[in-house]
Nucleic acid binder design. Sequence first.
DNA 1: AGGTTGAGCGTACATTTGTACGCTAATTTA
DNA 2: TAAATTAGCGTACAAATGTACGCTCAACCT
Lengths: 205, 205
Amino acid sequence: MGVRAQQKEKTRRALVDAAFNQLSAERSFSSLSLREVAREAGIAPTSFYRHFKDMNELGLTMVDEGGLTLRQMMRKGRQRAEAGGSVIRISVDTFIEVLESNPNVFRILLHERSGTSAAFRAAVEREIEHFISELAHYTEAQAKRTPELARAQAEALVILVFNAGASALDMKRSERKALADQLVLQLRMVATGAEALQQKMDNRA
Amino acid sequence: MGVRAQQKEKTRRALVDAAFNQLSAERSFSSLSLREVAREAGIAPTSFYRHFKDMNELGLTMVDEGGLTLRQMMRKGRQRAEAGGSVIRISVDTFIEVLESNPNVFRILLHERSGTSAAFRAAVEREIEHFISELAHYTEAQAKRTPELARAQAEALVILVFNAGASALDMKRSERKALADQLVLQLRMVATGAEALQQKMDNRA
DNA sequence: AGGTTGAGCGTACATTTGTACGCTAATTTA
DNA sequence: TAAATTAGCGTACAAATGTACGCTCAACCT
């Protein structure tokens, strides 16, 4: 890559990072202005357009990038689970860790999921869908579920996890412990319930 | 109530209604400006301050009012359930109906739940908490659950329902049918799983 | 009846925003 | 080496926003 393209990439990163850094509990992506982001990135407002068509395009980039980060981290966590122990427990613990080290990635996903732009909502949904289908396939193979049931189960699990994540963002470390415990309990409920429903169906056939 | 206070109340209502009417899939509360709301309500921007300290105060009013509306409608639905039939099925159907007739109430609750103002998040959480604890008490008595388990179960149910609501907002009527079916399946999973966990605990004791 | 209150208005202003336009200077290409 | 490309800048402007201030006049109180 030439010197020129390299510098451009660097500035682009500065923009994305600037935007992520400005996110907080009090500041959502849609409340950021193009000028603010440019200022934080150390470039002139008008230079922003050399990299993104508008703020929307930047936001979508962030969603995609954030989703990728998340999936990579969760995958690493799953490897830990393969060493043995409760899959649910380990996954929840991993999730909390990921959330703690990337709060702003979660913020944008959680907020824009119910946001004002259809493109954003779709992008977030796509990211969540990754999690769901990955999990559904796993369950279908592992626990011999009907595809339909596996899907419903996976979706329920993911929703519960993400929701807990939203609550966790506002919490202190100590409170998070209790949250994680309750989440584990809820996930077990779903898993147990799905198993029972599956068996009932099998018996009927 | 005097003529004066009556007129004031009328204008206040106009403001609240104006704000609710401006909400849509593309427009969140936090993207509304004081001036827009005043314009829609037919008053001068500066007159807004005769009724609310700022937009935040208006928003909190809307959350409270919306939550109340929701609970009232769900209560009515529950009476229908007492006539017999599956509690889960009837509740879900009621919920979908409520959602269809008050989409904007849901929009503000769902969006501000992950919103940018702590006061808003707390207000929404309070509303959701109403649902959860009402349901937890019901389950605790009806199905003889441990308080802890009843709480976890109720919370899981409510979260799944609200989440489905968020998806439903973007859907056509026909798609909603499938969503409702899957939601029912998920709720049964949770209920069945909670029952199984409860029995396991009872046996151990 | 006469004084007080307060809802609603119009004017005004400082800020902030997105973005159009044209320049510069360094890199890339030919 | 000469020409072309382009990242980044500064200037500029129209639009919109929140809100301070002071006025009016109908309703209210005594």
